[in-house]
Amino acid sequence: MTTEELKNLNADKVVDARGTACPGPLLAAKKAIGEMSTGEVMQILSSDEGTKRDIPKWAQKKGHEYLGTVEESGYFIIYMKKG
Protein backbone atom coordinates (compact mmCIF):
# COMPACT_ATOMS: atom_id res chain seq x y z
CA MET A 1 0.00 0.00 0.00
CA THR A 2 1.16 3.55 -0.63
CA THR A 3 1.81 5.98 2.19
CA GLU A 4 -1.30 7.90 1.16
CA GLU A 5 -3.44 4.76 1.24
CA LEU A 6 -2.07 3.82 4.64
CA LYS A 7 -2.77 7.28 6.02
CA ASN A 8 -6.37 7.06 4.79
CA LEU A 9 -7.00 3.76 6.56
CA ASN A 10 -9.41 3.85 9.48
CA ALA A 11 -7.71 2.02 12.32
CA ASP A 12 -9.89 -0.07 14.61
CA LYS A 13 -7.17 -0.03 17.23
CA VAL A 14 -4.34 2.40 17.90
CA VAL A 15 -1.46 1.25 20.07
CA ASP A 16 0.79 4.07 21.16
CA ALA A 17 4.04 2.46 22.23
CA ARG A 18 6.21 5.53 21.69
CA GLY A 19 8.83 5.93 24.37
CA THR A 20 9.09 2.22 25.09
CA ALA A 21 12.05 0.12 24.00
CA CYS A 22 11.98 -3.40 22.56
CA PRO A 23 10.11 -5.59 23.47
CA GLY A 24 7.57 -2.98 24.68
CA PRO A 25 5.93 -2.27 21.28
CA LEU A 26 5.78 -5.98 20.40
CA LEU A 27 4.17 -6.86 23.70
CA ALA A 28 1.73 -3.97 23.37
CA ALA A 29 0.78 -5.21 19.88
CA LYS A 30 0.42 -8.77 21.14
CA LYS A 31 -1.82 -7.58 23.99
CA ALA A 32 -4.00 -5.47 21.68
CA ILE A 33 -4.43 -8.04 18.92
CA GLY A 34 -6.23 -10.32 21.37
CA GLU A 35 -8.96 -7.69 21.72
CA MET A 36 -9.52 -7.37 17.96
CA SER A 37 -11.62 -9.25 15.41
CA THR A 38 -10.40 -10.76 12.15
CA GLY A 39 -10.03 -8.15 9.41
CA GLU A 40 -9.68 -5.21 11.77
CA VAL A 41 -6.76 -2.83 11.30
CA MET A 42 -4.28 -1.88 14.00
CA GLN A 43 -1.86 1.04 14.04
CA ILE A 44 1.23 0.73 16.20
CA LEU A 45 3.06 3.96 16.96
CA SER A 46 6.67 3.38 17.93
CA SER A 47 9.96 5.19 18.20
CA ASP A 48 12.00 2.01 18.65
CA GLU A 49 14.01 1.26 15.47
CA GLY A 50 14.12 -2.51 16.03
CA THR A 51 10.33 -2.62 16.00
CA LYS A 52 10.28 -1.70 12.30
CA ARG A 53 11.53 -5.18 11.47
CA ASP A 54 10.19 -7.02 14.48
CA ILE A 55 6.48 -6.36 14.18
CA PRO A 56 6.13 -7.04 10.43
CA LYS A 57 7.93 -10.38 10.90
CA TRP A 58 5.80 -11.22 13.93
CA ALA A 59 2.61 -10.28 12.08
CA GLN A 60 3.49 -12.47 9.12
CA LYS A 61 4.40 -15.42 11.32
CA LYS A 62 1.18 -15.15 13.32
CA GLY A 63 -1.01 -15.05 10.21
CA HIS A 64 -1.78 -11.33 10.23
CA GLU A 65 -1.27 -9.01 7.27
CA TYR A 66 1.44 -6.37 7.45
CA LEU A 67 0.18 -3.43 5.44
CA GLY A 68 3.11 -1.03 5.66
CA THR A 69 4.94 1.56 7.71
CA VAL A 70 4.67 5.33 7.59
CA GLU A 71 7.49 7.51 8.85
CA GLU A 72 6.55 10.49 10.98
CA SER A 73 8.74 12.99 12.78
CA GLY A 74 10.52 11.12 15.56
CA TYR A 75 8.40 7.98 15.29
CA PHE A 76 6.71 5.71 12.76
CA ILE A 77 3.37 4.01 12.36
CA ILE A 78 3.05 0.33 11.49
CA TYR A 79 -0.22 -0.81 9.96
CA MET A 80 -1.42 -4.39 10.16
CA LYS A 81 -4.63 -6.29 9.66
CA LYS A 82 -5.63 -9.09 12.01
CA GLY A 83 -5.76 -12.49 10.23
Binding site: C22, P23, L26, L27, A29, K30, W58, K61, K62
Partner: peptide
Protein backbone atom coordinates in the same frame (compact mmCIF):
# COMPACT_ATOMS: atom_id res chain seq x y z
CA UNK B 1 12.91 -11.29 30.48
CA UNK B 2 13.39 -9.78 27.03
CA UNK B 3 13.86 -13.16 25.35
CA UNK B 4 10.88 -14.51 27.28
CA UNK B 5 8.77 -11.60 26.03
CA UNK B 6 9.65 -12.46 22.44
CA UNK B 7 8.75 -16.10 23.01
CA UNK B 8 5.40 -15.17 24.52
CA UNK B 9 4.67 -12.84 21.60
CA UNK B 10 5.22 -15.89 19.37
CA UNK B 11 2.70 -17.83 21.49
Amino acid sequence: GIILSGAVAED
